[in-house]
Each structure stands twice: as structure tokens, then as C-alpha cells.
């Protein structure tokens, strides 16, 4: 027995691939994106440090990120000095302790953008993240100091 439904208020149509039922999505929830960090990094300082200014290599910049498929790092830089960046990640155990020392390097390169420019870096650039901890480090390699204003959003869906 064909199944029909009312379409356009006055038209009965058979259900088919070309004419599917209009339905509401049930049993689904939208996934919010969370702001995980807003920080200004002092790039007048020399040496490699994370976005929060830490030079302690075992300290994560972001913790408890296991629920996020990826992170999006937005930043505004008011100077164009050449700057290197590295994105590091690792997993933790049930107690939140890293499985081992050190990090897995997800990305490295020269920080894109000139003076007074907006930029964005997806972490990871392809595929899924779901790492528990991230450490994002930057280092100005030459030129004048500047301020690097960052925002990181965690995306689930």
C-alpha cells in the first residue's frame, strides 16, 4: 500500500526518494562551540613560550579538551615580526595525568599574517582532534615586539 502525505496544503503525494516526508529531527541536540581561551601573548619577550606566557614545557595551554573534534585558534596580531609557532597535543589518563612526558607535534610553521591582521588556524588542520591537552607555543625570531591577541574555540560536531 503506498504511503501518501499532504504536500503544499492541498496535494497528496506518494512517499519516495524524490518526495520524502517532511519531518522534524527528533532525538538530536545542537552542539555548541565553547570559547576555551582568550588571552594576549606578550611578543615583546624573546624565547619560546605558550599563549599564556609559560615557558614550562610540560604545562598545557588547554586541558580537558577530549570532547572537542577540533580547536579553532583565532588571533589578531598588531605586529608583523617573523614568529614561529608549534601546536603540541597529548592524551591523559582517567586522573588527568599525561600518559607520558613530552608532546606530539601536530603543526609547526611561521605564524601567518602581517601587522594588524586577523588570522585563523584550525587544530588539527585536517582530521579530528579529541586530544586531552594542547600546548601552543610561539616565538618571535626577529623584528620588533608586538601583541598577539588570541581566542580559541572548541568545536564538537
Amino acid at each position: 500500500m503506498p504511503v501518501r502525505f499532504l504536500r503544499n496544503a492541498s496535494e497528496l503525494a506518494d512517499v519516495s526518494m524524490e518526495s520524502p516526508l517532511p519531518v522534524q529531527v527528533a532525538n538530536a541536540k545542537p552542539v555548541p562551540a565553547d570559547t576555551l581561551l582568550v588571552a594576549t601573548t606578550n611578543m615583546f619577550l624573546s624565547g619560546e613560550r605558550d599563549l599564556l606566557g609559560s615557558t614550562s614545557t610540560e604545562l598545557p595551554t588547554l586541558d580537558a579538551c577530549g570532547q572537542y573534534r577540533k580547536l579553532i585558534w583565532f588571533y589578531f596580531r598588531d605586529g608583523a615580526a617573523p614568529t614561529n609557532y608549534r601546536v603540541l597535543a597529548r592524551a591523559t589518563d582517567h586522573n588527568g595525568a599525561p600518559l607520558g612526558t613530552g608532546w606530539q607535534e601536530l603543526a609547526t610553521g611561521t605564524l601567518p599574517g602581517g601587522a594588524n591582521s586577523w588570522n585563523r588556524i584550525d587544530i588539527p588542520a585536517s582530521g579530528d582532534g579529541y586530544y586531552d591537552q594542547y600546548r601552543i607555543v610561539v616565538e618571535r625570531t626577529s623584528g620588533s615586539g608586538y601583541s598577539l591577541i588570541n581566542k580559541i574555540v572548541g568545536v564538537r560536531g
Binding site: N27, A28, K29, P30, V31, P32, A33, R156, G157
Partner: peptide
Amino acid sequence: RVIASQGYWKE
């Protein structure tokens, strides 16, 4: 009209 889409979880 500007609309925006976001991901969703299936329960």
C-alpha cells in the same frame, strides 16, 4: 536572509 547551520548530536 542569512541562515547558519551547526552540527548536532543524535541521541
